[in-house]
Amino acid sequence: MQRALRILVLALIATLAVLWGVAWFGREPGEPLGDAFVRQIARLTGGEAPAPAIPGSVQLPGSMSLGGPFTLVNQEGRPVTEADFKGQVMVAYFGYTFCPDVCPTELGGIASAMDLLTPAEAAQVTPALFTIDPERDTPAQLKAYVSNFHPRMVGLTGTPEQVAEAARRFRVFYAKVERPEMSEYLMDHSSFIYLIGEGGKVTALLRPQTPPEAVAAAIRAQLARR
């Protein structure tokens, strides 16, 4: 069973790597890499990727579905599923606590976006870090880490199999990077921000380095649709 799961994860990583490569070499002049990536997926699924409605967002083609049910463990050590966030808009980022630069930058941007919301709006939003490094990101490690960003932010971890399944549903690329000169391994990973609604389904996808103002606008757009 574990061998089959490893093969599945490796196949997923290889597929995503190929798609990223095709997106990189096939993007239009000035086209963000994130848009090119989604456009390549749209081609495979027979859909079309319309122009983004909100600055920084990537419109998902109608035939493309991201996200879904997940079973993980929160920073308090309690098992949680997508049902625990019913009625909330989740602002999710897949990263890890030992990330040296990109993850804290993106999570800081999400925290700044939360501060732009009114108290009533913020009460309907849960920012979340989904780890892609379950080996080191224990609940206690996540609890200490996410508390540095925003009081409403949650950290989600799990077994390697649970984390891999969540990443598969959200089509997140990640891989361990180890070199002899490194004292600690790093994790290579995609860096989108996901807005998640009912059933764990992605309702909006935001590119890396989307300004907090645009993230807040995307959140408000999701709240207005409820």
Rank of each mutant, 00 (worst) to 15 (best):
K176Y: 06
V177Q: 12
P180I: 15
Q162R: 09
F170C: 03
G158N: 05
E165F: 12
F149A: 00
V177T: 10
M187I: 13
R171E: 04
A175P: 06
A167V: 07
L156K: 11
L186A: 10
S183T: 15
V154F: 02
K176S: 09
A166R: 03
R179V: 07
A167M: 11
G155L: 01
E178H: 07
L156R: 08
T157L: 14
V154S: 05
F170T: 12
V177K: 11
F149R: 00
V163L: 08
V172C: 12
G155Q: 03
V163M: 12
A167C: 12
Q162M: 13
F149P: 00
F170Q: 05
R152Y: 06
M153H: 01
K176C: 07
R168M: 06
H150V: 03
V154G: 06
P160Y: 11
G155P: 02
F149E: 00
T157P: 08
M153Q: 01
M153T: 00
Y185M: 09
G155E: 03
E178P: 02
V177R: 14
E184F: 14
M187Q: 07
H150M: 05
M153R: 01
M182A: 15
P151I: 03
V163T: 11
V172E: 08
G158E: 05
T159V: 11
M182D: 15
M187K: 08
T157F: 14
Y185P: 05
R169I: 06
F149H: 01
V154M: 05
Q162E: 07
E161L: 07
F173E: 00
V163W: 12
M153L: 00
D188Q: 08
F170P: 05
T159Y: 11
E178I: 08
Y174D: 01
E161H: 08
K176N: 05
Y185L: 02
V177Y: 08
T159A: 10
R171V: 03
M182Y: 14
S183A: 15
M182Q: 15
H150D: 04
Y185T: 05
R171P: 01
E165A: 14
T159E: 04
T157Q: 05
K176W: 02
G155A: 03
F149Y: 01
H150G: 02
A166L: 04
H150T: 02
D188H: 07
L186E: 11
M182N: 15
R168P: 00
G155R: 01
P180D: 15
S183Y: 09
M182G: 14
E184I: 08
E184Y: 13
A164R: 13
R168C: 04
V177G: 08
L156A: 12
E184H: 14
D188Y: 04
R168V: 04
F170E: 08
L186I: 09
Y185C: 02
R169V: 06
F149Q: 00
A167K: 12
R169G: 10
R152G: 02
E184N: 11
E181L: 14
L156I: 10
F149T: 01
H150S: 05
E178G: 04
E184C: 06
E178N: 06
F170N: 10
T157A: 10
K176G: 06
M187Y: 12
L156D: 08
R168S: 04
E165C: 08
P180S: 15
T157D: 04
G155K: 02
V154C: 05
R169P: 09
M182L: 15
A167F: 12
P160T: 06
E181Y: 11
L156E: 09
E181P: 13
